[in-house]
């Protein structure tokens, strides 16, 4: 059997889901026996590769880079798994949505609070523009499975990865789909 090509992606989130992933500790060594990690924010690779078997996506879609990138990820991956509450629900990243737009947050952070040189950051091509609304991943691309949790506890991640490696459909139940 061909080794699973696995990727992880970090969008609008706090990286907590990736930390939880790293909390799998020595099981990561077992995982390395079963799968190749072909793309992840914790290794230095700039371009998302083709023909990824499964990808764990952390974080919500909060800016235009996320929006473009997730579509590349979708096109190049067989299975896309929303990884953690930000990807699944928007979670804390989407906290600003009830304000109606991104502007109140930017104004608060960059105009009202700073003592020195208050201005809105505008760096086309360097700082991606924020979307008016933060949306969960499945609002933009098709998602194949969901792994909720803030962050998903390591044993839940392990269960998911073991299922994927075994080539079984990933469907979690009961406490394994607990939000928060």
């Amino acid at each position: 059997m061909a080794r699973l090509k696995l990727a992880t992606v970090w969008l609008g989130g706090c990286s907590g889901c990736h930390m939880s992933f790293l909390d799998l500790d020595e099981w990561l060594i077992d995982l390395a026996q079963l799968a190749d990690i072909v793309f992840t924010p914790i290794m230095d690779r700039k371009v998302y590769p083709e023909n990824v078997d499964a990808v764990l996506v952390e974080g919500a879609i909060a800016n235009e880079d996320h929006f473009e990138f997730i579509q590349d990820v979708r096109e190049r991956s067989k299975l896309l798994i929303s990884f953690g509450d930000c990807a699944v629900t928007g979670n804390v990243t989407a906290f600003r949505n009830p304000l109606g737009s991104a502007l109140p947050v930017l104004e608060r952070s960059y105009l009202e609070l700073p003592d020195l040189d208050p201005h809105l950051p505008v760096e086309p091509g360097i700082v991606p523009r924020l979307l008016e609304r933060v949306v969960p991943v499945h609002a933009v691309v098709k998602v194949d499975a969901y792994l909720p949790g803030c962050p998903p506890p390591p044993d839940r991640i392990r269960l998911a990865l073991e299922t994927l490696v075994a080539g079984k459909p990933l469907e979690l139940h009961g406490k394994d789909i607990k939000f928060g």
Partner: peptide, 14 residues
């Protein structure tokens, strides 16, 4: 490819 559903706000430089 989904169109950008939401207008970006940051280039509102005032």
């Amino acid at each position: 490819r989904r169109r950008l559903p939401l207008v970006a706000a940051t280039d509102n430089s005032r």
